[in-house]
Structure formats: C-alpha cells, structure tokens
Nucleic acid binder design. Structure first.
Length: 554
RNA sequence: GCCCCCUUAGCUCAGUCGGAUAGAGCACAGGUUUCCUAAACCUGGGGCCAGAAGUUCGAAUCUUCUAGGGGGCACCA
C-alpha cells in the first residue's frame, strides 16, 4: 500500500520539483477520518519552492492525475495530502497478500548484504541473568527481522574464556573444593558465590577425590579453570537453546591469543600509526577518532588489557568481510562504544559499519517490591528461573515490548498471576482462534455434503464487495504491515512488531465478536475466511520474527 | 567534577529522522456467553508530555538552562 503510494509520489513530486526527491515521508494519519495514508511533503517543500504549502499540494495532486488506486485525494489542514485508497485497489492488495504470503509482507532492503550480530556473549562464569535474556531476545528477533529483510545474517557469541573472570571462577571453585576436602583455604574476596560453585567443586571431588587437596592453585589452575568454565558454558548453551535462541558461530577469546591474532592486530594498528609507547605501556591512539582518551592495550607489567583481544576480535570480524557489524551490549558498557568505533575506523572502515545497540537493565519486582540482585552474593534471579516460571514465549515477548534502550521492569508475580491476561496470549489467541474458524468451516462443509476444505482452497476467489467498513479497516491494517516491517528493520527495532501485533490482534478480537465468519452464505463466508487467512498470515509472520510460537490451539 | 541515557494517564510504556484534537495495556467502575474458544468483547473516568526559555508556518519530538532518576568515567574484566 505504502509502496504503491510512494511510487506515485516520487513521480509526481519529481515532476513538480523537476528533480527527484530522496525522502518523502508517508505516515498513516492519526485520525482515520483523514484518510488511509498521508504526507506532509508539500509543507516541507515550502522553503525550497517559495510557495504556500497548499498550492504545492495542489500541484502534486494534479501531477498524480486520475488513478484507480485512489478513491479520493484531499488537501487538508496546513497542507497535508491525504490519500484514501479505492475499495477495489485494497481488495487487489489483499489478494496479493494471501497469494504471495511472506514475500508480500517484507521488503528487500538488505539486498543480500551480509551482517553479523554479536549478542549475549555472557561470561561463562555463572548462569544468565535477565539482562542477558533481554539481549538474547533482542538479538534473535533482530536477526530474524534483518534476514527477512534481505540481509545475510550471522549470529555470533563471543566466549570470554581467557581473562581474569574465568580464572576467578576457577579459584572460587578451587577454594570450595579445598573446603570440601577439609583443607582451610581463603575464599577470594571478589569470588563467585552462587550455589553452582559448590556443585562444580563437588563434581571435581567426585572425579578426582583429594588429588588436589592442599595444593597451590597454580598447580591445579588448568583443570579447575577449564573444567569450570566449560561446565558453565554448557549451561549457557542449554539455557539459550531452551530459550529458543541459537547461534551460528562461537568465537573463543583464547583462540585469538593462540592463533597470534591479538599480536597481529596490534602490529596492524602499529603499521597504520595508531600505536605508541608511553610510561612503559603500549597505547592505542583512539583520540584520533574522537574518543575521550587514548587507551592502554599492554600494561607496563607486560600483560594485555581486556581491550587488546577485543581489538583482535573486531579486526577478525572486519577481515571476514561483513558489510555491517552489530554488537549488542549491556548499557553499562556504553563507555566502550567510542573506543570500539575508533578501532573500526583505525582499521579503515567507516564509523557506522559497526553499530552498537545498548540494552538497558531489567529490574525485577516481586509483587511491586524491587528484588535486590547481588551477583557478588550469588543472589540474583536467573533467566532460567523466570523462563521455567512463565515460559520462554512470554519472557521473550515481554522483553520485546519495550525499546531496548529503555529500562524494563518485570514483576514476576504479575507475569505469573496474570498469565491469563498476558499480552503474548492475547496475540497467540487470535491466531489460534482463526485456526478454529477454519476447522469450523470444514465441519460445516462436510455437514452440507460438500468436499471439506474446498472453501479454504479457493480463498483468493473472494468477493471484495462483501466487505463492510469494519472489514476494510482490518484490511488496511494488514496492508500497513509491510511499511511497519520496513521501518522496524531500518531502525533495528523489533519492538515495533510487538506493538503492531497487539493492535492487530485487538482489532481481530473485536471483529470476531461482532461478526460470524462461517455463515450460510457461501460468498460472504469465503470473503470473511479470506480476511481471516490474511490476518493469520500476518500474525504468524510477526510472531516468527519475535521468536514466539503461533499455536493452532490454546 | 566530566560524559551518556531517561522523565508522557494512578502504574508500565508507545508515539514512525518537526506535523492535524497526544495513544495502548494494566489498574479501577459497570456490563456481555442458547452463537466459529470468555486466554475474548463492550462502556466509562482519567494528561500543564518534569519545569523554563528559544528555533518556525507548526515542538512530546530540535537547541540551551534547571530539577529529579539511572549508568559510565582504570595500566579492572
């Protein structure tokens, strides 16, 4: 719908301007009475053309000329041009939606370009918390969205298996192990304290007995560190799988060191002139690209900072030839955006070839009261708990009902207690309902001695004249999906899908209550079934992007 | 101290790169089922878009300042 209008407008505005205009804004008007789609383009051209907006609007309208597409074109207010589509055009579009399905709903804005999305990348030192879950839901939905929009998408998880954190995990387990063996050993001050630490140490004790009792950590670090983080990594993978989030590639930090890629990255930057030595340390000149200060990559004690492998990692991404990179980080890392984009530019890529999406915190409430979460004390609600409690679909849907950069509150009591009135069920229910309408239609056909499923197979032969105003409202809502989809993909904002689905489901539920789909009149029934099918196609597509099931029965 | 984000209905939040009378869900009050699923529907009250000034045909949206909330500012990860 928007696509067709845009075609008309580009041509007409081009004729008025005598040159093509790049961006023409098209939006559905707030007040439905004003029409189906609207453009303020005449007003934004006033300065350029030095004419009153309404005059420009008139010129554009006459340049469009008569067309069967529109039922009416109005100029209103200060200079809006409001388009009302013709009944026949809308029906033709609905026909297209039903017969072409998904290809009608999407737009190929990626044109085969490749894009890598790195997300979650939680340290394998403990279970995933809700923030990770939010990142997982967003990353998965975004990759679905972008791959539907014609990008080749790769989903990657970066494993922080080399740094201080996994070592600390090993020490924590080691300390617990010593205690189990009856050896006194100080627990590291900032060590990990969850129950899982004890579980792992017990497992090691069962396997190796007292073999490491009383030893120095350095003698046993490899088995403890490696066993522990691999164990945790396995749990992360399991959690993600059960959450319905899958990755294409897993990049290990250790491997970057082992392959010499960290050293190569530093050499590369040195050759490009962005490395210097000062105060006994090695620095990356990130201020050359607008960062606040230069960053140390090798400390004066000879150790790499965490930043060094990050550079190597992103250099590797660049070398793999993606057209665009997306990192999804927790908002507490926003201070690193500047230096990472400096790295990208130092490697000769445009700044915006790396886009960092920040995911704000999830705060958990229980019956309105905030739940204190302390990772230190090992007291925090895990994604696993919430997922087991309210289900993966509900959890994902809730995470995707907000923009990623705004704080999210989840009240676990509310999510549980109100599960019956949960927005995800509302949308899924609409889908299931439509399915049962089709079941009903089949039964009626059989009862009438007709071949069952005949109606269902001839939906595209629906007669649009049967549609009343409310049905046409639904049709228009459906035909707005492609525009919403395109904008969501361009903005990298899956939450727009969530909102749209709730609106569409709401409209459908209302319609369902007011009108009976399966009637005694064949023509009418076929038309209404066609409309239901179209709603179902759109719901299914939207839910698929969100990673939420579209059940046939509930 | 410096930087970033946030502030919209009682609560949680949308608001499409400046557009027409600012929306939804929840909560609250009342109603709907001989009928394709009541996980649904209908009706109702609710707002100085934190505050002030500016930019222009036009501001919740852009700029500046103020107030409040969150986060970040390491040769820590």
């Amino acid at each position: 719908m928007e696509r067709i209008l845009r075609g008309h407008l580009i041509e007409a505005v081009g004729r008025v301007l005598a040159e093509p205009m790049v961006t023409i804004e098209i939006t559905p008007p707030k007040d439905e009475g004003h029409g189906d789609l609207s453009t303020p383009v005449a007003m934004s051209l006033t300065k350029l053309l030095k004419k009153p907006p309404r005059k420009i609007a008139e010129d554009i309208v006459s340049a469009i000329g008569p067309s069967g597409t529109f039922g009416k074109i109005d100029i209103a207010g200060p200079g809006f041009i409001n388009f009302t589509f013709s009944h026949s055009f809308l029906c033709k579009e609905l026909h297209g939606l039903i017969s072409s399905g998904e290809s009608f709903l999407t737009e190929n804005i990626g044109r085969g370009r490749s894009i890598q999305i790195e997300f979650v990348s939680a340290n394998p030192t403990g279970p995933m918390h809700l923030g990770h879950g939010r990142g997982a839901a967003l990353g998965a939905a975004l990759s679905n969205l972008l791959s539907e929009a014609g990008y080749r998408v790769e989903k990657e998880f970066y494993i922080n298996d080399a740094g201080r954190q996994v070592r600390l995990l090993g020490i924590s387990v080691f300390a617990k192990y010593q205690t189990l063996c009856g050896v006194e050993y100080p627990f590291p001050e900032d060590g990990y304290r969850g129950d899982y630490i004890e579980d792992i140490s017990r497992e090691i004790k069962e396997k190796h007995g007292d073999a490491f009792a009383g030893k120095d950590f350095d003698e046993a670090s490899v088995p403890f560190v490696d066993f522990s983080y691999l164990k945790m990594l396995g749990l992360l993978k399991k959690d993600l799988e059960d959450f319905g989030v899958f990755f294409d590639t897993w990049q290990s930090e250790r491997e970057l060191y082992a392959n010499g890629e960290v050293a190569q990255a530093i050499n590369d930057l040195r050759e490009r002139g962005y490395i210097f030595e000062e105060d006994g340390a090695t620095w990356f000149r990130s201020t050359a690209f607008g960062d606040d200060k230069d960053r140390v990559i090798i400390k004066k004690d000879g150790e790499f900072t965490y930043f060094a492998p990050d550079i190597a990692y992103h250099r590797k991404k660049v070398a793999r030839g993606f057209d665009e990179l997306i990192d999804i980080w927790g908002a507490d890392h926003h201070g690193y955006v500047g230096r990472m984009q400096a790295v990208i530019q130092a490697l000769g890529c445009p700044k915006d070839s790396l886009r960092v999406l920040l995911v704000q915190m999830v705060s958990l409430l229980k019956g309105g009261q905030p739940v204190q979460m302390s990772k230190r004390a090992g007291e925090f609600i895990t994604l696993r708990e919430v997922m087991d409690d309210i289900g993966a679909d509900t959890t994902k849907f809730l995470f995707l009902t907000r923009r990623s950069d705004s704080h999210l509150e989840v009240d676990i009591e509310v999510a549980k207690a109100q599960s019956a009135e949960n927005p995800v069920y509302y949308v899924q229910y609409a889908h299931a309902r439509i399915n049962s309408i089709f079941e009903k239609a089949k039964q009626e056909e059989e009862a009438a001695g007709l071949p069952a499923g005949n109606l269902e197979q001839s939906l595209t032969a629906f007669n649009g004249d049967c549609f009343n105003d409310e049905e046409m409202r639904l049709v228009k809502k459906l035909l707005l999906y492609p525009m919403m989809f395109k904008n969501a993909a361009l903005a990298h904002e899956p939450h727009r899908i969530t909102f749209y689905l709730q609106e569409l489901a709401g409209m459908f539920h209302t319609y369902y209550h007011k009108y009976k789909v399966v009637t005694q009149e064949l023509e009418l029934t076929r038309s209404r079934l066609a409309l239901c099918r179209a709603v179902q196609i759109v719901l299914r597509h939207g839910l698929k992007i969100l990673g939420v099931k579209a059940p046939d029965r509930m």
